[in-house]
């Protein structure tokens, strides 16, 4: 299972206290993972990526295993440690605003 850590506002919105555990299929990509998040937690649709353009919201970033995955192609495979569940896929709000 893939482990996902959400920012606090999205945890509140989704009604979850800790990390998500999701099955994103046999060859999980970033797109498949976001599809799985939105299927499991429909209230998060539009909060991580725009519903029309499907682009990541500009003030959110994706990290895992010490790497910034934010600008990886959406159909690239996720790193094996993320797929294996040994590394958490972090969705992080940018330090911005007031």
């Amino acid at each position: 299972m893939i482990r996902v850590a959400l920012p606090v506002h999205l945890r509140t919105l989704a009604g979850v206290g800790g990390e998500l555990k999701l099955d994103a299929g046999d060859s999980p990509t970033q797109r498949a993972l976001l599809d799985a998040i939105e299927a499991g937690y429909p209230m998060l649709r539009g909060t991580i990526r725009d519903q029309v353009t499907q682009r990541r919201r500009v003030l959110l970033r994706f990290f895992a295993g010490g790497r910034d995955l934010s600008n990886e192609p959406p159909d690239a495979l996720l790193p094996p440690p993320v797929v294996a569940g040994t590394e958490i896929f972090f969705i992080v709000g940018a330090i911005a605003g007031g």
Partner: peptide, 8 residues
């Protein structure tokens, strides 16, 4: 709404 997470 939120600058980070869009519109609800």
């Amino acid at each position: 709404s939120s600058g980070w997470f869009g519109q609800m």
